[in-house]
């Protein structure tokens, strides 16, 4: 998968690059408007991750506008410091598929990117398989060894989030914010995720699934089949 990251803050860009590379994406970086504009129209990417504020005479919105004329099939995720409702609406109107407000969790970006690419490339029909677990995102169903597993919406989201970020340490805040959505910053006590994780684990193990959810003491969890 080829991805173009348009971000002028180099340190932030490096973090995103590192994380996405560990997920085996092919990522290129453009840190100003002219570079971004040129790359966006000359090459073809599966997805563009676009910051709105850019140096060099244009904004991320201008890049998206140009891109959508030439490569309408490319997916676009906007990342912006502006928490404005307006920006979000304009961005989505221009054809962006998703919008993330800075600061965001890299694991959240990763999950959204995966969901987006799945929808774009396989019409959402591609299954996510991890050993005995199979998720059919189109129907929001989970199968363990081909048997349907009954999960609450939050447990489903949790499992999908884990599978999108395999082998990564997921901080509690990141999990909580993923489950709660944009308003997660209203709350500061995330004990509730324990019960969801406990229930999910129990359901998986009851169906004969191995326990892939590893608690990382004091920090969060990791979904992995490695030791």
């Amino acid at each position: 998968m080829k991805i173009l990251l348009i971000e002028d803050e180099l340190e932030l860009a490096t973090s995103v690059l590192d994380f996405l590379k560990s997920e085996h994406y092919l990522v290129e970086l453009a840190s100003d408007f002219p570079t971004a504009y040129e790359k966006a129209i000359v090459y073809e990417y599966d997805c563009l991750i676009v910051d709105i504020n850019l140096p060099g005479g244009g904004t991320g919105l201008d890049v998206i506008r140009a891109l959508k004329k030439l490569h309408p099939e490319s997916a676009v995720i906007i990342i912006s410091a502006r928490n404005g409702v307006e920006d979000r609406i304009v961005g989505l109107d221009l054809g962006a598929d998703d919008y993330l407000t800075k600061p965001f969790h890299l694991s959240e970006l990763n999950a959204r990117l995966k969901a987006l690419l799945r929808r774009r490339h396989f019409g959402g029909s591609s299954d996510i398989v991890f050993h005995e677990i199979k998720i059919k995102p189109a129907e929001r169903n989970v199968y363990i060894k081909e048997n349907l597993l009954d999960l609450t919406p939050k447990e489903y989201d949790l499992l999908l989030y884990f599978l999108s970020n395999q082998h990564h340490v997921l901080r509690r805040e990141s999990i909580a914010e993923h489950l709660l959505g944009d308003d997660a910053d209203q709350m500061d006590d995330f004990n509730f995720i324990y019960s969801h994780i406990k229930n999910l684990r129990k359901k998986l193990i009851d169906r004969g699934c191995l326990d892939y959810v590893k608690a990382v003491y004091g920090i969060g969890y990791k979904f992995t089949d490695k030791k």
Partner: peptide
């Protein structure tokens, strides 16, 4: 402030993916 905060948050996440960290180090980073 948003940009530097985003950078810190990103770096924390990257750092925590490092398997060679000791438990104490990981918790402090957290």
């Amino acid at each position: 402030l948003q940009t530097p905060l985003a950078i810190i948050q990103g770096k924390v996440e990257i750092l925590l993916q490092n398997d060679t960290l000791s438990e104490t180090q990981a918790q402090q980073i957290n």
